[in-house]
């Protein structure tokens, strides 16, 4: 029972941090119709920027939180620059070029990170406020991971709130359903694109920074996370926020179950789930059927 609880919480915290990244990917796709291969790269950059910040200002006295905020900020600015100066020029072009463009970013930044931080594994300690374990009655569980679960839920509710209750959220939802409607409503479409791309990147950066104490920072984590995000949105349905949520939670649980029964090969379980979804509901659990 205790073991099961811990496994469940591990799966949940992993799934929820995956959601932070996959949600941004899905929203960006929904609005811009750009599949951002560099989203995992933004996540990775977020982790490394937090590492750098912490190594200068330290973890205590809120240092960690400043580092996390800084990651989000840097990513937002970086993504805004990328969108404004480069991506924007490709909107009218064949989708092949947009795909290749974001893919070029993956290659570029993987080498930038290698140049700046090297190839050895780096890590951040838990912030002092959240170190140690919490007694949950059934089991002791690391406080930081509990916190990650909480953040995931708060973000999910927050994004839901923005989508349902604010003007911006309505615009974004309208854009996801019918992009032509935006221009017709007299909305500044380029600005919407800029903000959505930048906010999605910031979310990924914050996700990477928050995950850093729980994971190790190492080369290759960018492709690892983007592949998992792709699986999340394939399972949940591309462009659907709740689909991303369910997909991420499912994958988190599946991985933690797999880690127990088939260690080393847990990723195969994730693929099997994806293949099953593709076979029976190719448009994803919550996605819309094409052409309707």
């Amino acid at each position: 029972m205790m073991y099961a609880t811990i496994q469940f919480l591990n799966g949940l915290s992993y799934g929820l941090s995956l959601f932070l990244v996959a949600a941004g990917l899905s929203i960006i796709f929904g609005v811009l119709r750009v599949l951002n291969f560099a989203h995992g790269t933004f996540y990775m950059l977020g982790g490394y920027i937090a590492y750098e910040a912490v190594s200068h200002i330290g973890l205590s006295d809120g240092g960690f939180w400043i580092a996390v905020a800084l990651s989000g900020l840097v990513l937002a600015v970086l993504a805004a620059i990328i969108e404004r100066l480069m991506l924007r020029k490709l909107y009218g072009r064949d989708e092949v070029y947009q795909l290749l463009f974001t893919f070029a970013l993956v290659l570029l930044f993987s080498d930038v990170i290698r140049g700046l931080w090297g190839t050895q594994v780096l890590s951040i300690s838990f912030p002092p406020e959240l170190s140690g374990a919490q007694d949950l009655g059934l089991a002791y569980y690391p406080r930081y991971r509990l916190f990650l679960c909480l953040v995931g839920i708060v973000v999910a509710i927050g994004v839901w709130f923005v989508f349902q209750r604010t003007r911006w959220g309505r615009i974004i939802r309208a854009a996801t359903q019918d992009r032509e409607i935006l221009g017709a409503l007299g909305i500044n479409v380029p600005l919407v694109y800029l903000v959505v791309f930048s906010a999605g990147a910031a979310l990924a950066g914050i996700g990477g920074a928050l995950a850093a104490p729980a994971l190790a920072l190492k080369p290759g984590m960018d492709t690892e996370i983007i592949v998992e995000c792709f699986i999340v949105v394939i399972i949940g349905g591309l462009g659907s926020l709740w689909g991303a949520f369910i997909g991420a939670i499912l994958i988190g649980q599946l991985r933690s179950i797999g880690l127990y029964f088939v260690p080393e090969w847990e990723i195969v379980l994730v693929y099997l789930l994806m293949i099953a979804v593709l076979a029976f509901r190719p448009w994803g659990l919550l996605g819309k059927r094409e052409g309707e």
């Binding site: 291969f37 989708e95 983007i226 592949v227 792709f230 080393e264 195969v268 593709l278 190719p282």
Partner: peptide, 28 residues
């Protein structure tokens, strides 16, 4: 047969995902 089921975006995602799966299998 799995990669061409949906749009070209899905195709790109799936080819990367399966590519990494093959790599993982070879590696492990």
């Amino acid at each position: 047969s799995l990669c061409v089921r949906l749009t070209s975006y899905y195709f790109s995602m799936l080819t990367l995902a399966f590519g990494q799966l093959i790599w993982a299998v070879v590696f492990k």
